[in-house]
Design a binder for these strands. Structure first.
Lengths: 350, 350
DNA sequence: TTGAAAGCGATACCAT
DNA sequence: ATGGTATCGCTTTCAA
């Protein structure tokens, strides 16, 4: 995986600008400009020199200057209703939005591509001076996600993604601990054959949650079963088929998120099993839907909106150059929302 | 309601800039600048003159110039995973994002406030030259939403909101027609006491959908019942209580969206009614979750992603100054997703 | 084909 | 307290 440090660094003198590229390539400023924006109007040989220089220096054109001069921003303003409460991410964004708004900041949301890499233009924005800071948010991200943009060396914060290894403070849920506690409660009420429904294991949250699950099983000397999904409804439903095919069907299934849990419930209900009598099911996230399945889904709710707000505050703090936070991870506790998909978990000790 | 035309217009000479304000207020450029950004460092009297002039001219500071000079953009780049398929809006945004991306455009998403008014900064962005066009998207918006920003007189398109009355081309679903057809089908299978679960009636979609519902009832000489909600789950559940209290309970309930339908189903199921035997329920939107309730929810699905992409194309077309579209509304047909919450609707003629 | 120079609009320093 | 002016980084004529 390409790490930040392999990418060209900004010099101590600040962002590299077109004039730097020009002198590096030993051409005039205007020629450098043309080489980049109207390549066909420049001698091939010179063009290559410029391009090479730009690459070597890690040049990113300053978006503000460009749009000021050209009168074109290549940017669209999308106006939407306030963030709706759907899924953790939206909840989180609501918190982010509110906080940034009240601090007088705007937000450019750049989605990653389907393969979770950052688009080229995102990187330009990050390094081209149009933004003051970066908030990387992700809950279902494989490792190696938005890193290239972080090479902008701008103040940055991770939300629901652990970037602390890169020196970027991150706001996270206590996935491992919370799942472990929940698992222990399931054991405490007598469940003995427990399964975990997870996702491809390069996902931070899956790793953590599965670890929490395993921790508790090991403590009791129980053996874990693992089912595979990919965080969406359909994969949960497919996993149900796998579950039904087991000779010794687990009597409790801990899912890595709500969506899979909901799909899973549909699958096993359709087969005539009773929830929670035959199998207890739990989710993770605490989306609004969880209260509207039948039975309702017991889940670990992430206080997403607060986490969003916290991450935004943190970022603003970094931008304003106040004393950097003493922590690298801000861990927020998930909250257990108990519903019909599990028997009463009672006062099982945490 | 404040309409576009009451707002200050840009002069034919283009956006008003600080120098215009300065001369209008009969002060130096630098003084005008200070009056706006460091008010306390300017004599009250002069300050008022400047502020008045700015207001009179409808001045909006050029964001590009400001951030170029000050080195501060007051903008945060938020990096997110690809749009997820939740709710219509997200689906729609996925289409928008893909289209804009491939055309080399970036997106600034500005949420409206909780009261559905545009934030002051949104308006600045729109009028301050940082964006080339505006896409207003909304499905649950009361009338009078994002209009002020549209005063920027930039190319604009409405998505799931009808702004055609303001000369802004809009991409819409055939709400009225689709609901009417569905209602007729319910009548065709023998339902006679039909209710509509709607939302505050200044909402475009609610108005259209209710009209479609009423159309079909009138055709058969049936009387409509109307229940009130506000588009969210909880309001659907509350509406169920109202429904249960009716002496003559309707045997079919057409809901203005999926969320209310889902909440409503939960409410009536909890009371022991059977769906669809005792009461058939339908939704609108076709979110992913509709397939995971029990029973599954019959709903009119909006092809949101395609609509999003279409609206983005349209906007780009306007920006590029190609021949403006000959239509003011692009109407897309909703698709009936038939599930367990209604008896087989069969081949009822449309 | 390349280079020099004139702005784009706003800010902030330095005078007054 | 106010006014003049250099400057931010880049694009774009206009000459050479």
């Amino acid at each position: 995986m390409k790490t930040i440090d392999e990418l060209p660094e900004r010099t101590a003198e600040g962002p590299v600008k077109l004039s730097d590229v020009a002198s590096e390539a030993r051409v005039a400023l205007s020629t450098a400009s043309r080489a980049l924006s109207n390549p066909e109007r420049v001698n091939v040989k010179t063009r290559m020199r410029v391009l090479a220089a730009a690459a070597r220096l890690g040049y990113a054109s300053n978006v503000a200057a460009r749009s000021l001069r050209s009168g074109l921003s290549r940017t669209i303003l999308v106006i939407m209703p306030p963030w709706r409460s759907r899924g953790v991410l939206d909840d989180a964004m609501r918190g982010v939005d509110a906080k940034l708004m009240s601090a007088g900041y705007s937000m450019i949301t750049g989605s990653l591509n389907e393969d979770f890499t950052a688009d080229h233009r995102l990187i330009d924005m990050a390094r081209g001076g149009l933004v003051d800071g970066i908030l990387a948010v992700a809950n279902e991200l494989p490792a190696g996600g938005p890193l290239p943009v972080l090479s902008a060396r701008l103040p940055a914060v991770g939300l629901m993604i652990d970037l602390s290894a890169h020196g970027i403070p991150s706001v996270l849920t206590n996935d491992r601990e919370a799942v472990s506690a929940l698992t222990s409660q399931l054991i405490a009420i007598g469940r003995r054959r427990l399964a975990y429904l997870g996702a491809p294991s390069d996902n931070y949250h899956d790793v953590e949650r599965f670890a929490g699950f395993s921790d508790s099983l090991q403590k009791e000397g129980l053996a874990p079963t693992r089912l595979e999904g990919n965080f969406d409804f359909a994969s949960g439903e497919r996993a149900a088929a796998g579950y039904l095919a087991l000779e010794q069907r687990p009597d409790a299934v801990v899912c890595a998120n709500d969506d899979m849990a909901i799909g899973f419930m549909k699958g096993v209900c359709a087969a005539g099993l009773r929830i929670p009598e035959d199998v207890a099911v739990t989710g993770f996230d605490g989306g609004e839907f969880a209260a509207y399945t039948s039975p309702g889904l017991t889940t670990l709710r992430q206080p997403a909106e607060q986490m969003g707000a916290a991450s935004a505050s943190l970022l603003l703090q970094l931008i304003n150059g106040e004393d950097p936070p003493v922590f690298q991870r801000m861990i927020v506790s998930a909250i257990l929302d108990e519903r019909g998909s599990t028997p009463a978990l009672g006062a099982a000790k945490r």
